[in-house]
C-alpha cells in the first residue's frame, strides 16, 4: 500500500456498544496513541468523513441511524466495524434486541476483533481501511490528489 496524500477523517457512531470500545476509539486519538499526528481526525459531520467507525451491534432503533450516517458520507468511503459486538453481536448476540453485526445493514470493509478491541488493533484496522480507501479511489477512475 502506498500512502494517500490526503489525511483520512473519521466519523464514529456508537450503535449499541457497551462503551468499552468507544472509549478505546477515543483513546486512539489522545496522547498515548495519538493518531492525530498522522492527520487522522475524529469529526462529527459525516459529510466530511472518509472512514466510518462503528462500535456495537445493530438493533431496530439504531438501524436507520447507521444507514443515515452511511448515506450522508461522500464516495469513496470505508466502514470499519470495531469490537466483537460490531462484527457479530459479540457477547450480546443472543439478546432479544440484538440483530447481529453492523454488516446486517451496511457493507463493512474491515473487521477489528476484540472485546474490548485494543487501541493497537483499532489503529491497525484504520490503517487497513486506508488501503481499501485507496483501492476504491482507483476503481472510481480517479487519482488520489
Amino acid at each position: 500500500m502506498s500512502y494517500l496524500p490526503k489525511s483520512p477523517w473519521l466519523v464514529h457512531y456508537d450503535a449499541s456498544s457497551c462503551n468499552g470500545c468507544d472509549i478505546e476509539v477515543l483513546a486512539c486519538l489522545t496522547p498515548l496513541y495519538d493518531v492525530e499526528r498522522f492527520g487522522v481526525l475524529n469529526i462529527g459531520n459525516p459529510k466530511h468523513a472518509d472512514i466510518f467507525v462503528v462500535t456495537g451491534s445493530v438493533n431496530e432503533q439504531n438501524k436507520s441511524v447507521i444507514q443515515n450516517i452511511y448515506n450522508q458520507m461522500a464516495e469513496p468511503k470505508v466502514v470499519v466495524a470495531i469490537g466483537a459486538c460490531a462484527t457479530s453481536g459479540g457477547i450480546f448476540r443472543e439478546c432479544y434486541n440484538v440483530q447481529g453485526g453492523v454488516d446486517k445493514v451496511i457493507p463493512v470493509d474491515v473487521y477489528v476483533p476484540g472485546c474490548a478491541a485494543r487501541p493497537e488493533a483499532i489503529i491497525d484496522g484504520v490503517v487497513q481501511a486506508l488501503g481499501v480507501l485507496e483501492e476504491k479511489y482507483k476503481n472510481m477512475g480517479k487519482v488520489a490528489k
Binding site: D14, S16, E94, C95
Partner: peptide
C-alpha cells in the same frame, strides 16, 4: 432512549 438497548438482563436464562 432505546438506541443502545440490548436486553442483557434476559441473558440470565441462557
Amino acid at each position: 432512549i432505546g438506541f443502545v438497548h440490548r436486553g442483557l438482563e434476559k441473558l440470565v436464562e441462557k
